[in-house]
Amino acid sequence: MNDRYERWQAAERLALTLIEGGLQRMAARTLAVFLFSDQDSVTAGEIANRLEASAGSVSGAIKSLATVGLIERLPSPGSRREHYRLRDDAWSTLFTSQNTVIQAMLQAAVAGIAATDEGDPARQRLAQMHAFYEFLLGELPALLHRWHQQAR
């Protein structure tokens, strides 16, 4: 067995683990490409070729991964293709206020609270959701600081 084959088998196993953890299939496989790539950046076309997937499904996966802060688009002077890479701080970004999913959850809770009446059980659940995300955002800076100290 060659090293390249073993590398991509490991990538597919990681993708399966991510899928089992709730990530959409194409986003999981695309993330595995970023994690296992020997290049600094990749294009959507390169990902599609590697995964033997459609451009549309790869585009959706890239958008999903960028939304949660795992990947970023790079400037690519002289190239007509968009280049992407895994962010250096990808994992900690997942848990910061930069994460648009956390912000969207907070906004959804606020909208839900505003749309429900005092004493309504739905409002109580939404208030708990809001309180959890507020608490999470309040605790994350200290947690991330400890992470950055350890990661040095």
Rank of each mutant, 00 (worst) to 15 (best):
M1G: 14
N2E: 11
N2I: 00
D3F: 10
Y5C: 04
Y5L: 13
E6S: 10
Q9P: 00
A11K: 14
A11F: 15
A11Q: 13
E12D: 15
R13D: 13
L14K: 13
L14C: 09
L14S: 10
A15M: 05
L16N: 14
T17R: 14
L18I: 02
L18D: 12
I19A: 08
I19D: 06
E20F: 15
G22F: 04
G22M: 04
G22C: 05
M26R: 13
A27E: 10
A28T: 06
R29N: 01
T30M: 10
L31K: 04
A32C: 05
V33D: 02
F34C: 03
F34L: 08
F36H: 10
D38E: 11
D40F: 08
T43C: 08
A44Y: 02
G45Y: 04
E46H: 08
A48I: 02
A53P: 05
S54M: 00
A55L: 07
A55W: 08
G56H: 11
G60I: 01
G60Y: 07
K63N: 12
K63H: 12
S64M: 05
T67K: 07
V68E: 06
G69D: 06
L70Y: 11
L70N: 10
I71V: 12
I71K: 07
L74Q: 12
L74A: 01
P75M: 06
P75C: 02
S76L: 01
S76Q: 07
P77N: 03
G78T: 07
G78D: 09
R80Q: 04
E82P: 00
E82Q: 09
H83S: 06
H83R: 15
Y84T: 01
R85V: 01
R85M: 06
D88L: 07
D88N: 10
A90T: 10
W91G: 12
W91A: 14
W91E: 10
T93M: 05
L94R: 03
T96V: 02
T96E: 11
T100N: 09
V101F: 12
M105W: 05
M105L: 13
L106Y: 11
A108D: 14
A109C: 13
A109H: 09
V110H: 15
G112Y: 13
G112E: 11
I113Q: 12
A114Q: 15
A114I: 04
A115H: 02
A115Y: 00
A115W: 04
A115D: 09
A115I: 01
D117P: 00
D120Y: 01
P121C: 04
P121W: 09
A122W: 01
A122L: 11
R123Q: 13
R123V: 02
A127S: 11
Q128Y: 15
Q128S: 13
M129S: 15
H130K: 14
H130F: 08
Y133C: 06
E134G: 03
E134H: 09
L137V: 13
E139F: 05
P141I: 07
A142L: 07
A142Q: 08
L143E: 09
L143R: 12
L143G: 01
L144S: 05
H145F: 10
H145W: 08
H148C: 06
Q149S: 10
R152H: 13
